[in-house]
Design a protein around this nucleic acid. Structure first.
Lengths: 203, 203
DNA sequence: AATGTATACGAACGATCGTGCTATCTTCTA
DNA sequence: TAGAAGATAGCACGATCGTTCGTATACATT
């Protein structure tokens, strides 16, 4: 399949723009993104950037998609390479905390920030962010379910509650660390997660 | 002390503006606040609203202060009316979850939203939000310390970690409920908090 | 009664926002 | 090699932003 050099050029620019866009959005929010600023920082014309996406909303949606891909690459995929069961569940928590702590996005977890920004709004951007958040929450839940099915977790554990708790601890570590700096929040979260999983595990 | 009618009038307007401002900010963020929109909704002149605060940043800082007062009234004060110890700790968690669930602010917890908005920025607004967040985290921690000193919690409990966990569960319930609707997140958080405190309690 | 102070307004400022329209490149197709 | 197609730039638009200025009004101080 021969590539069209014109669209290839456009795609390359789009990628450059989007990589910067998600970084900005993780700090300033998806509304804090502005075409003018984006163009100025990348030394492109505002109208050129605009033409690549067609509207500000499309840019925001594309940014959410780009962030999803980066998130999948850094968190979901390495987790899926671990054997099913409690080992994968532990890996999931560790990978997510590492992803947050490594500042894959300079403002911490992209979806934590944009989620808080759009949680109480309506529209396509809200829906995109909500769907991505829901998908990850479901991923945690299904990983917990797998671990229980594998016989690694006690039958009595409430999977919804355990998934909720693990997700809560991770998000709190991200929030506290970005807000106040330091790595202590991650240490607290790791200790709490370990204790919680040891408690839920058989034996 | 005789009141100055002019200042009294200004203070009254300021109160009206700020009450609306915190509601808007809890949904749209402190940056989403605009003098023009605020003035239009309240049928005041933009310049009049501006003059009351002197700058947009001062308005944002005043909004944070107003939100702090509302938060103290709804969460901290009722908690302090409960006897020290594990009872007060349980009341603190319950009061915070109720405050979030009752939508004292239409966008959920004011400090969750503005915290996520300003966590990775610098400046006076960041500092104000960070200080308010830190103060509440410290309040949770000191309530845990009290409960342990009262002999209601096991000696072995790590107060920093328990405070972190309780705070994490509450914030996650707020986030999930605002994003996806429904009251299930609060039920999950209440169950998790109860279990965690029962586990940490003596006997 | 006269002077000063604070609230509140209307109009306008320069800056920036998102969005068009048009022209100029580069690249592919016939 | 001519022309179509896509990427990018330049320029201008209406709207909105925070802010400033001048002014009218209400209250306080003298």
């Amino acid at each position: 399949m021969p590539v069209d050099g014109r669209v290839a050029r456009g795609d390359a620019t789009r990628r450059i723009v989007l990589r910067r866009a998600v970084d900005i959005a993780s700090v300033e929010g998806l509304d804090g993104l502005s075409l003018g600023r984006l163009a100025a920082e990348l030394e492109l014309s505002k109208s050129g950037v605009f033409a690549l996406f067609g509207s500000k909303e499309e840019l925001q949606l594309a940014a959410v998609e780009t962030a999803s891909a980066i998130f999948a690459e850094n968190v979901v995929e390495p987790t899926l390479r671990v054997e099913q069961g409690i080992a994968r569940l532990r890996a999931l928590c560790a990978n997510w905390l590492d992803y947050s702590e490594r500042r894959v996005f300079p403002g911490g977890c992209f979806f934590f920030n944009t989620g808080a920004e759009f949680d109480a709004r309506t529209g396509r951007v809200h829906d995109a962010v909500a769907n991505a958040s829901r998908a990850f929450a479901q991923f945690i839940r299904s990983t917990v379910v797998e671990a229980r099915k594998a016989g690694h977790l006690r039958e009595s554990v409430d999977v919804n509650r355990l998934a909720f708790e693990l997700h809560a601890l991770g998000r709190a570590a991200n929030a506290d660390s970005v807000m106040f700096g330091g790595t202590e929040p991650y240490a607290l979260a790791r200790a709490a997660i370990t204790a919680r999983l040891d408690d839920a595990a058989v034996q």
